[in-house]
Each structure stands twice: as structure tokens, then as C-alpha cells.
């Protein structure tokens, strides 16, 4: 096993354990902090793949904005952070069956896939240094992704207007 594989296994285990704790932590704010740990683990996986830009963006957007949003939402809305109600309701056997079926389906699908044994082509040696330039060129060149780039802006606008609309209605509704 190479050093990279060992690092990957450690990072992946950390991510999975954190993700599990998100679901099982009784304290909802602790769950939010575990989510941050899981997102950080994903960023580390991107870094292992030489995807520098995506790794940093993962931390900037997911930890710096989305996790903070979650934490604020949890802290601002719940009066009692330590939920006393049980974490499972009586539908859990049904949920377990659906999860098991999904897993079985995924395994059946992936059995015929040769991606596990085939090794990917080597990245060019200067990939780390040039990947952002390639991305920048792809985002604005008319032959590539200029339309998705502009549509992303419209999508963000829709998200902002939607969020403001919902919050505005709450404000009128007599909330804080």
C-alpha cells in the first residue's frame, strides 16, 4: 500500500465517522459541528486528488458559509438544543429496508463496472499549476461553458430572491 492510500483511508474513515455522528449526535448543535468535520474531510479528499481549487472552495463555501448558516439556523430557531425526544420513530424498520435495498441495488449496478480495478490516466505534471487557468478559460469561452456560467448567476439570484421572500413573509407574520 502506498502512502497516498494510507492517507486516503485515514481521511475517508474520519469523514465517515463524522458523517455518522451528524446523524447520531443527540445535541443538534454538536451534529452541526460534526457536519463541519465531515465537510473538512471531503475537502481533504479533493486535496488528495490534486483538485486544489475545489478543495479550497469546499472549505470557503461549505465550512465558511453553509455550515455557519446551519449553525446559525439551529441556534436561532431551537429553544432547547438538547432534544429529549427519541431519535428513532416506529418507522425505522421500513427505513432500514429501503436503505438495504438501495445499497443492494448500488452494489448490483457497480459489480459490472471496471472502474475499481482500472487505474486512471496520470495527470499532466503541471496540472496543479494550470488547472485554475483551464477552468477560467472553460467558464468564459463561448465554445465551452459560458451559458452555464451566466445561468449560475440567475440561479443564485433566484436563491437570494426566494430566501428574502420567505424571510420577508415571516417578518410580516409577527415573528422576530
Amino acid at each position: 500500500m502506498t502512502a497516498q492510500q494510507i492517507i486516503f483511508i485515514v481521511v475517508a474513515a474520519f469523514t465517515l465517522v463524522s458523517a455518522l455522528r451528524v446523524a447520531t449526535a443527540r445535541n443538534i448543535v454538536h451534529a452541526a459541528f460534526w457536519l463541519v468535520a465531515a465537510l473538512f474531510g471531503v475537502a481533504a479528499v479533493y486535496a488528495l486528488l490534486n483538485a486544489n481549487f475545489i478543495a479550497v472552495v469546499q472549505v470557503v463555501v461549505y465550512i465558511g458559509a453553509i455550515a455557519i448558516l446551519f449553525i446559525f439556523a439551529v441556534m436561532l430557531t431551537r429553544r432547547d438544543m438538547r432534544d429529549a425526544s427519541p431519535q428513532l420513530n416506529r418507522n425505522w424498520p421500513l427505513g432500514a429496508i429501503v436503505a438495504a435495498l438501495t445499497a443492494a441495488g448500488l452494489i448490483a449496478l457497480l459489480r459490472g463496472w471496471d472502474g475499481f480495478t482500472r487505474s486512471a490516466a496520470d495527470l499532466p505534471a503541471d496540472f496543479g499549476a494550470t488547472s485554475v487557468n483551464l477552468l477560467g478559460e472553460a467558464l468564459v469561452s463561448p465554445e465551452a461553458y459560458v451559458l452555464p456560467f451566466e445561468v449560475a448567476s440567475v440561479l443564485l439570484l433566484a436563491a437570494l430572491v426566494g430566501a428574502v421572500f420567505v424571510a420577508f413573509n415571516k417578518k410580516l407574520g409577527g415573528g422576530k
Binding site: 455557519i68 448558516l69 446559525f72 441556534m75 436561532l76 432547547d80 422576530k176
Partner: peptide, 21 residues
């Protein structure tokens, strides 16, 4: 650990959109 002003949440929402931008 009590309820705080919801205004903070609005600012984080606006921030999130401009951060992604």
C-alpha cells in the same frame, strides 16, 4: 442557549449567495 435575533440569519443567507458568486 436561547433564541436570538433572526436578522443574523438573513445576513448569512445574503452572504452565502455572494460568496458563491
Amino acid at each position: 442557549w436561547m433564541q436570538f435575533k433572526a436578522q443574523y440569519y438573513i445576513f448569512v443567507l445574503v452572504f452565502l449567495v455572494f460568496d458563491v458568486e
